[in-house]
Amino acid sequence: MGAILSSLFSAGSTADASASSSEPSSVITFHSSDLWQRHFDASKQNPKLDVAKEFGVRAMPTFVLLKQGKEVDRVVGAKKEEIEKKVKKNREKPKLAA
Rank of each mutant, 00 (worst) to 15 (best):
A59C: 04
F40A: 14
F63G: 01
E54K: 09
K53A: 06
V27E: 07
S32H: 10
W36Y: 13
E23V: 11
G56S: 01
D41R: 03
M60H: 12
Q45A: 11
T62Y: 02
L65R: 02
G56F: 00
A17M: 06
Q45H: 07
A59S: 10
R74F: 01
S13G: 15
G12Y: 08
A42D: 15
V57W: 00
V72C: 09
V72S: 06
L65N: 05
A52M: 06
D16Q: 10
S20M: 11
Q68M: 08
G69T: 06
H39L: 08
M60G: 13
A59L: 07
A42Y: 14
R74W: 02
D34Q: 13
R74T: 06
S33D: 15
K67H: 12
G12I: 08
A15Y: 07
G69I: 03
M60S: 12
S10I: 00
S22N: 13
L65Q: 01
N46D: 10
S33C: 03
R58A: 08
V27I: 11
V75E: 01
H31T: 09
S10F: 10
S25Y: 14
D34I: 05
R74L: 03
D73N: 08
Q37S: 15
V57L: 00
A42G: 12
R58Y: 06
A52Q: 09
G69W: 05
E23T: 15
T14M: 03
T62E: 05
A59G: 08
E23Y: 14
E71S: 04
R74A: 00
A11M: 13
K67V: 02
V75T: 06
P47H: 03
S25F: 13
P47Q: 02
V76Q: 03
F40Q: 14
T62P: 06
S20V: 12
D34T: 09
T62H: 04
K53N: 11
S33F: 02
F9P: 08
V64E: 01
N46Q: 07
D41C: 03
W36P: 02
V51G: 02
H39S: 14
R74H: 01
Q45T: 05
S43T: 13
V76F: 08
S32G: 10
M60N: 12
G12A: 11
S26I: 07
V76I: 05
D41L: 00
M60K: 13
P61F: 03
S18C: 10
I28Y: 13
F40V: 12
R74V: 01
P47D: 06
K70L: 05
D34C: 03
S22Y: 12
S32E: 10
R74M: 00
L35Q: 15
S26Y: 12
S26V: 04
E71I: 00
K44F: 05
P47C: 04
Q37K: 13
S21N: 15
V75W: 05
Q37D: 14
L49P: 15
F30S: 08
Q37M: 09
V64I: 03
T29G: 09
E23G: 13
E23L: 05
S33P: 14
T62V: 00
V51M: 03
H31N: 09
T29C: 03
